[in-house]
Design a protein around this nucleic acid. Sequence first.
DNA 1: CAAATATACTGAACACTGTTTATTAAATCC
DNA 2: GGATTTAATAAACAGTGTTCAGTATATTTG
Lengths: 206, 206
Amino acid sequence: MGTAERKEREKAELKELILKTAKDILVKNGQDGLSIRKIASIVEYSPATIYLYFKDKDEILHELMEVGFKMMGSYMKHISPDMSPIERIHKTGEAYIKFGLENKDWYDLMFNSEKPMKHIFDCGAEWNEGMNMFNFLVLNCEQAIKENNLTNLEPQILALQLWSTVHGLVNLTLSERMCIVVEGEPNELINKTLTSMLVSIFNQVK
Amino acid sequence: MGTAERKEREKAELKELILKTAKDILVKNGQDGLSIRKIASIVEYSPATIYLYFKDKDEILHELMEVGFKMMGSYMKHISPDMSPIERIHKTGEAYIKFGLENKDWYDLMFNSEKPMKHIFDCGAEWNEGMNMFNFLVLNCEQAIKENNLTNLEPQILALQLWSTVHGLVNLTLSERMCIVVEGEPNELINKTLTSMLVSIFNQVK
DNA sequence: CAAATATACTGAACACTGTTTATTAAATCC
DNA sequence: GGATTTAATAAACAGTGTTCAGTATATTTG
């Protein structure tokens, strides 16, 4: 009889409901507003029940982080292999920054918070999504170096340089350290800085 | 009679003791381990008493942030006007990164945490320490641009580019996003990236 | 069909958090 | 010495993540 299957399906459904609820709270109330007890009260189970579906809060944050990476992917759909490596790098940077600025809570989960990372280290797991993103960047750097005869550059170091700069720009903006130090439209400053970096590296943009 | 003066002195002393205790807890237990109640129990007053000396926790974190900037200053003492602007920029970057990596909790308070900033916005105050740091960087950029005839560069944008990169490097390292994505000694990777950036901008280091 | 087992769930507790308010105790002023 | 100002606090409020003993229901076994 299919009662075992039905039960398993119901368990999976509740787990999904918990995750969906966590996602909604994150969007509506931010990371500080996201608590196990709030999730529990919305799905109408006791807080203890949440722990039958997730090891702890870090695991929930880790799964939300993965959702964040999927969202980020949709910001980068338009980046095609037809573009030049430099253009690809430029578009990736723009999309990365746009995603970060428009999705602070997701960005923090993905690139700042210690909690999803703690879960990864506790489980001996990998940060596949982040690794894929970085490897894609390294690949583009390799091609850009080859196509432009920039033999003095190392792809990995160049990728680190690019990532650090956009990560820094996003964080300085989100933490309001940038706006307090320099006047001017944030988006314009960010784009100018991104362009400045690409020019300094490749002596061209696009 | 000097009883009013004595009372005032005693109030200032307790305020200083609270701050010193907060500092000790931050160093020993990190930002998560720093609570009003823990401060209160160590200075042997009730938690409510803390609120007679500070508006709220954000104010304490703001004052700790200012201590952090003083600490950072001591990492930059050796940077002298005798150096070339580019060398000054290089040494500033190195010192900034060294401070960040060696003082995670202070760095977070100064450049990541929303709480000290919330206090600044609530009080209509200014982020003087951060501003001074940034202005010093802009000044060095101006001089570097002038001395090296890099007329296509804007000092402010260049400063933003430099700051973003070192800020990104520090954060990616502290949040363990860098070590999980790329193998190799972190310090070496960071120095290579810093050098790579300076070379790409100035076509030279030092 | 009844008894035994397995599953799912929860109440209550533990040890915390920041913050406010009414109240008390002590020191100072007149 | 009595009135007043000041300093400090106990207790409460409204939360937090997490654990565990206990219960009720559903399923399986004899």
